[in-house]
Amino acid sequence: MAVRRDSPGVVNLLGREYTPGDDSPVVDLGQAKAGLAICFDVAFDDVIREDVDDGAQVFMFQTNNADFRGTDENLQQREIARMRAIETGRSVVNLSTTGTSQIFSPDGTLRQTVPFDEAGLMVADVELRDGRTAGIVLGPWVQGLALWGTLLGLAVLAVRVRPRAIGSTAPRP
């Protein structure tokens, strides 16, 4: 019988061993400022927005996908990295110790890649950008509108679809 890894069990360990810091996730490299995020952080908009607000001109995401072998988690992270390039208008260098690694242009175009579970090297000049895109500026507003619109829609639906009382004499539509 094959042993299957329980990835959700690994995710439950996140709060036990890590404490969020309060330093900026941007590192000054001399000629550029790189916004940093580790594996799970790339999924959180506020981390990426903080990088942009602190002057990140390029992103460098680091991850270790070893706990998720046999799943599509590394592919999911690759696509989140591509989305972050498009959203922020910045180059993204996505580095994994065991999954796939890539360099994306600010428009999301894949420039280089190292396949899953292969050692490799990527060397490239990446475009550096400043400023804020519509995705960064409007993103929180769109999320808020989607949340409140959904809640309002559910409330209206709940009021309109109330069950009728048994024995009601009201005519059926």
Rank of each mutant, 00 (worst) to 15 (best):
E118P: 02
T63F: 04
T88V: 09
D125L: 05
V52P: 00
S96D: 15
P106I: 06
V114D: 03
L29V: 05
M1P: 07
A124E: 15
N74M: 07
F40N: 11
R111N: 06
L138K: 14
I103T: 06
G15I: 08
I103Y: 00
M122C: 07
D51M: 07
I136W: 03
L14E: 14
I80W: 03
D45R: 04
R172F: 07
A66N: 06
R4N: 08
G35V: 04
R160S: 12
L128D: 01
Q112E: 15
V123T: 14
L128F: 03
G70T: 15
T98I: 11
T88A: 00
A119G: 13
D107F: 04
V26L: 12
V142N: 15
Q57R: 05
E73W: 04
Q31F: 13
D46I: 10
F61P: 00
R4W: 08
L128W: 00
T150I: 07
S91P: 02
V52H: 01
E87V: 02
T169C: 11
R49G: 01
V58P: 00
G55M: 08
M122S: 05
Q112I: 00
N64T: 12
N12Q: 13
F68N: 00
R49L: 05
V3M: 08
M122Q: 09
V3Y: 07
G89K: 04
V10Q: 08
A56P: 04
Q57F: 04
R78S: 07
R129M: 11
V123I: 14
V137M: 15
V126N: 02
Q31A: 14
R69D: 12
S96L: 02
K33E: 05
N94G: 03
N64P: 03
A34R: 00
S91T: 09
F61W: 01
F61V: 03
F104W: 04
R5T: 12
I80R: 02
E118D: 12
T19N: 08
I103S: 02
A34G: 05
R162M: 13
A2Q: 11
S101K: 03
D54Q: 14
P163F: 04
R132D: 13
L157W: 13
A37L: 03
K33P: 01
D117H: 08
V123A: 15
P173L: 11
R90K: 15
